[in-house]
């Protein structure tokens, strides 16, 4: 036990007195930014793809868009996110001669990646809404677009919120690979503390704890949102 106390003391020295906590805070901030902005981009892309996939395909344009979306989803679900990060940062960016900070690249890649997953979640949500809802809107003379936006999507979102929470949690945890392209996340911060104090046990333990706390907080947030959205189900 004495040696563990020693390790904690070493960690504390590096973490607090030598200013390691600023790195942790930056790491935490980056982790959250990548996950939150990534999910936001993912939701926008995913919703668009899901709509393209459920739209009736009488005309040429939806068909073309549909095959593009299938390709997109296949591409991003078919490769690990690490590979996507590496390809984006070390292959695509130099090819087009763009110099973006690695954090921005991470946000983009995670957004594009989660878009592929969210599209399937969203599609199942849209399909879970009774077809009668669309019929009722159309019968009143509302357009497909308006009925989709005002009636179908809000109900779909309510149905998929738990799954969406899952996606967010997955995303938070998956961000731990961003150090591959040099972005400073939680792992980088604690690795720094470990390297400088020659002691890795406590830093990695604390890192695990921070991830758990993050995930628990998100789960709680989702619960609250779900309760709010379920208002229309409750018998008053």
């Amino acid at each position: 036990m004495g040696s563990f106390g020693n390790k904690v003391a070493k960690f504390w020295e590096m973490f607090y007195e030598n200013g390691g906590y600023t790195k942790v805070l930056t790491g935490l901030q980056n982790t959250v930014i990548i996950a939150v902005v990534g999910l936001a981009i993912g939701i926008v892309i995913g919703t668009l793809i899901a709509i393209v996939e459920v739209v009736p395909k009488y005309k040429k344009l939806p068909k073309v868009l549909d095959s593009f979306c299938r390709f997109y989803v296949g591409l991003f679900r078919g490769t690990p996110v690490v590979v996507q990060l590496l390809v984006a940062y070390y292959v695509l960016l130099p090819l087009i001669g763009l110099n973006l900070p690695s954090l921005h690249v991470c946000v983009l890649v995670f957004g594009l990646n989660s878009g592929a997953y969210v599209s399937e979640i969203m599609r199942s949500g849209i399909l879970s809404v009774d077809t009668g809802q669309m019929e009722a809107g159309r019968a009143l003379g509302l357009s497909y677009r308006v009925t989709m936006m005002k009636i179908i999507i809000p109900q779909a979102v309510k149905n998929i919120l738990p799954t969406m929470g899952n996606e967010f949690i997955t995303l938070i945890k998956e961000t731990s690979v961003v150090s591959f392209v040099g972005a400073a996340d939680l792992y980088v911060a604690f690795n720094y503390i470990g390297t400088n104090s020659y002691e890795f046990m406590v830093p990695y333990l604390v890192m695990a704890l921070i991830y758990i706390v993050l995930v628990v907080l998100i789960a709680l947030m989702i619960k609250v949102m779900e309760r709010r959205l379920r208002l229309s189900d409750r018998r008053t």
């Binding site: 009668g132 009722a136 009143l140 003379g141 109900q155 229309s232």
Partner: peptide, 20 residues
Amino acid sequence: NVHRRHMGMVFQQFNLFNNK
């Protein structure tokens, strides 16, 4: 859509908008 506005329709399953 313009013409459907002049034709009301009532369904067997009511189809009220659940989120409104």
